[in-house]
Design a binder for these strands. Structure first.
Length: 427
RNA sequence: GGAGAGGUGGCUGAGUGGACGAAAGCGCUCGCCUGGAGAGCGAGUAGGCAGGUGUAGAACUUGUCUCGUGGGUUCAAAUCCCACCCUCUCCGCCA
């Protein structure tokens, strides 16, 4: 959500921003709702003032034992008028607020302008893709060969885009998770959070998944939704709070499973682990003072990159252009890891500064040293997507005979094991 | 799921229809005192929305709303009624 008073004074900036984002939006309707709302409130406030004054008079007169019949009738009259205006005001206000939830964030001035991902800008690359002296196989072949990934049974017990990890596959997933959490908590100063995997609609609205992206979410009963990312519970952790200045910046890291319907991506990445309805992710979330948020974004990005460096996986960092930017984000860097079988870089992390967009929706504020209250800036980024990290490891560390070398930093998490080989086969 | 108790400001906690955005204490801020950010003394200390003044988004000011949330009763609701949410205790169920 944007600062409405600012929106009122900066129409042109919003219109340009919406265009750069390829978003259609009827702002005029919002402005007229706002006008209505303000004049109704003024009307209502005036009547309420009158009612309150007269009502007090009745109190005094009654104590003196005087007749208040006429006055009471009069106030009753005013109260009826108030009710009518208040109802109108509430309806107008509700509509005005609801409509605002559909306006995306304004891209930061450093975001490249462009229609789609072709305009994204490569910021830097790290590591050299390995030269294979054989044709690198896709991870699903490797995984099935080692009997550590079972796609067929995943579909059988759930649906397509669900996978069973087995034996060393499950162990690898757990190793990656623990390695990442240890790195972020012990080296990068993040506090670990293990949140609920179901959240209510208020939380989903707070971070911007609702109302616009309802069809992307799995909805359960009782107003609960499966989280698509830890960003939702962890950012909303401080919803409706005023944080004291001295505890900022707050750094949280959180492992969660993530659940996404992936509606509208029917043809994409149908094979393998790249696009699943359920996947694991270690997330980084920050709450910071506004003036520091772009520095904090760079640091957060560096923290995520550190994981890939430690794993010795080649990657590049891409600054998303305005047309490719997520709804709530003011600026996003994607980290893309090299996938040998596809001979391309694929997204493995997305690091964003939301500025005060989410903070406004979720009402997350802070009090500075002078005692003044303002909205914090929120940031988050994957640190990293675990499934996709496993994909990158399987493919980049594969050997011609189908085994996979375990990256050095993961070996302590796999009881010293150096190589993934077929262990045993039940069937 | 059943029974009971409860939800008040940064915190503790008083308040059962009218002068209550709300006692008292703690905490915090400022001032006095002091060698001293210790003790003592004094003052201040919620947020949202709308309007006005303006060194125009600093400050000041007026009104209004907010005592878990939403309705209702009443001239008037923290206070009475209804529904829901949450917390605690006991029972049931479960891991």
């Amino acid at each position: 959500m944007l600062d409405w008073k600012w929106v009122r004074d900066n129409r042109e900036i919003i219109i340009t921003a919406l265009k750069n984002r390829n978003t259609e939006f009827d702002l005029d309707e919002l402005f007229s709702l706002d006008d209505q709302r303000r004049s109704l409130q003024q009307e209502a406030d005036l009547l309420k003032q009158k009612r309150n004054e007269e009502s007090k008079k009745i109190g005094f007169l009654k104590k003196e034992g005087k007749d208040t019949e006429d006055l009471m009738k009069n106030v009753q009259n005013i109260a009826e008028q108030i009710k009518i205006i208040d109802d109108k005001l509430k309806a107008t206000e509700d509509e005005w607020k609801e409509k605002q939830l559909w306006i995306p964030n304004i891209p930061h001035e450093t975001v490249p302008i462009g229609q789609d991902e072709s305009c994204n800008r490569v910021v830097r690359s790290w590591g050299k893709p390995r030269e294979f002296d054989f044709e690198p196989r896709p991870h699903w072949d490797i995984g099935e060969g080692l009997d550590i990934l079972d796609f067929e049974r995943g579909s059988k017990i759930a649906a397509s885009r669900f996978t069973v990890l087995k034996g060393l596959g499950a162990r690898l997933e757990r190793a990656i998770m623990n390695f990442m959490l240890d790195l972020h908590t012990q080296q990068h100063g993040y506090q670990e959070i293990f949140p609920p995997f179901l959240v209510n609609s208020k939380a989903m609205t707070g971070t911007g998944q609702l109302p616009k992206f309802a069809e992307e979410l799995y909805k359960c009963q009782d107003d609960l939704y499966l989280i698509p990312t830890a960003e939702v519970p962890v950012t909303n952790y401080h919803a409706d709070e005023i944080l004291p200045d001295e505890i900022l910046p707050l750094y949280y890291t959180s492992y969660t499973a993530c659940f996404r319907r992936e509606a509208g991506s029917y043809g994409k990445d149908v094979r393998g682990l790249i696009r699943q309805h359920q996947f694991n992710k270690v997330e980084l979330v920050k709450f910071v003072a506004p003036e520091t948020s772009y520095d904090e974004l760079e640091k957060l990005l560096a923290n995520a990159e550190e994981v890939l460096k430690a794993l010795q996986l080649p990657y590049r960092v891409v600054a998303l252009c305005s047309g490719d930017l997520g709804f709530s984000s003011a600026k996003t860097y994607d980290i893309e890891v090299w996938i040998p079988s596809q001979k391309t870089y694929r997204e493995i992390s997305s690091c964003s500064n939301f500025e005060d967009f989410q903070a406004r929706r979720a009402n997350i504020r802070y009090r500075n040293k002078a005692g003044k209250i303002g909205f914090v800036h929120t940031l988050n980024g994957s640190g990293l997507a675990i499934g996709r990290t496993a994909v990158a490891i399987l493919e980049n560390y594969q050997q011609e005979n189908g085994t996979v070398v375990i990256p050095d930093v993961l070996r302590p998490y796999m009881q010293g094991l150096e190589l993934i080989t077929p262990q045993y086969r039940v069937i």
